[in-house]
Simulated assay, not measured.
Amino acid sequence: MKSIYLGIDISKKTLDICLVDQKSEAFFKIENKIKAIKKLFKQITTLDAEIFIAMENTGLYNYNLYEVLKDYSFNVYVIDPKHIKRSIGLVRGKNDKVDAKRIATFIERNYQDFDCWKPTSEAVQNIKILMSQRRHKVKTRQAIKQQNKELKTVKRTKIISSSMKINLKEIEQINKHIAAIEKLIKEEIANDSVLEKDIERIRTIPGIGSVTAWTLAVKTDGFVRLTNPRKLACFAGVVPFEQQSGTSLKTKPRVSKMADMQLKSVLQMAAMRAVRMDNDLKHFYLRKVEEGKNKMSVLNAVRNKLIHIAMALIKNKSFYENRLVLS
């Protein structure tokens, strides 16, 4: 049976599609709507071939595709845009049609290196949307707080005072929105008993609170992907890599900038909380610092350990006990 590769470039309103087989290529442009996607895939199923479909992860714009693809048995891959960009070398110019072809060509050459996409549960899908909304609200709140901080450095006038009061009211409203979103997240988690129990497990780890646990659940699609702690730690950007070439270049191992910054950020906060509490992680941190290790390097090691402990608890269906031996 022959193979056919589809590269899909996703935008808010449209999907640009490049279909590549052994002899030819074809291009399509359809609306990013479930009805249009169903019509296209119905036609594709008539082809006597094994179908490989690849797309970049663009967040909410992928969701119509996900909704349709869960009803088909295609080989589907969701690729990090940075991976494709770094694989194509030096290029000049781009457009949606070219991007679709690059995605199709990329998956044709590299599909064996990736795991197929699998549909996530409805609860995880909803939590992803809610976490995205929460993240935007938190960023907006932080920006308004920064405005007030800057206004305090200016001579206090009636206009300045009024502006600060408006900002404080807006912050209060955003806090209510965030609380409402968090309530919805908890309700969605309660609808999935397995997910609820897994989140409860990792929340027993020192330093890991609700937001960190929710983020881990979202990034692992409900703890069904990236369950290998080493791969998850690499994804989160907490694994140091050596930089060495011949005798002229050799640096200390450093974490890579190619990381999921959302996950890395919440893990940083979790690690900072953990080393302030009386637990094995704090004792590990203090011991390494006393040995002369760099504090940030040790804190990064704590982030790494948080991931390994969390994945161990999920795998073993157990809860954290403050008696782990940490090397």
Rank of each mutant, 00 (worst) to 15 (best):
M1H: 10
I4H: 01
G7V: 11
I8Q: 02
I8D: 00
S11Y: 12
K13E: 15
L15H: 05
L19V: 04
L19E: 04
V20R: 05
Q22M: 11
E25W: 07
E25I: 07
F28H: 07
E31F: 13
K35W: 04
A36Q: 07
A36N: 14
K39A: 14
K39I: 08
I44A: 06
T46Q: 15
A49K: 03
I53F: 02
I53Q: 00
I53L: 09
E56M: 06
Y61R: 05
N62W: 06
K70G: 06
K70H: 04
F74D: 02
D80Y: 05
K85L: 09
S87R: 05
G89C: 13
L90Y: 13
V91G: 03
G93V: 07
G93L: 09
G93W: 11
F106P: 00
E108G: 02
Q112S: 12
Q112L: 15
P119N: 11
P119D: 13
P119W: 13
T120E: 12
E122T: 08
Q125L: 08
L130I: 06
L130S: 02
Q133L: 11
R135T: 10
V138G: 03
T140W: 06
Q147S: 08
K149G: 06
K149C: 07
T153V: 12
V154A: 08
R156T: 14
R156I: 13
S161F: 11
S161K: 15
M164N: 09
K165N: 09
I166C: 10
N167H: 14
E172K: 13
E172P: 00
A180R: 06
I185W: 01
K186I: 07
N191I: 05
N191A: 13
D192I: 09
L195F: 03
R201H: 05
T204M: 03
G209W: 08
G209A: 08
V211F: 09
A213H: 02
L216N: 01
L216E: 03
K219I: 12
K219E: 14
F223K: 01
V224Y: 04
R225V: 12
R225F: 04
R225C: 04
R225T: 12
L226W: 03
R230F: 03
C234Q: 10
F235G: 01
A236T: 05
V238Y: 04
F241E: 10
Q243F: 09
S245M: 12
G246K: 12
G246L: 14
T247D: 15
T251I: 14
R254H: 13
Q262A: 12
Q262E: 15
K264Q: 08
M269E: 10
V275C: 03
R276L: 12
N279I: 06
D280T: 07
L286M: 11
V289K: 04
E290Y: 05
K293R: 15
L299K: 04
N300T: 15
R303F: 01
R303T: 01
I307H: 02
A310E: 01
N316H: 11
K317L: 08
F319R: 00
Y320M: 02
N322C: 01
N322E: 07
R323E: 05
L326C: 05
S327F: 07
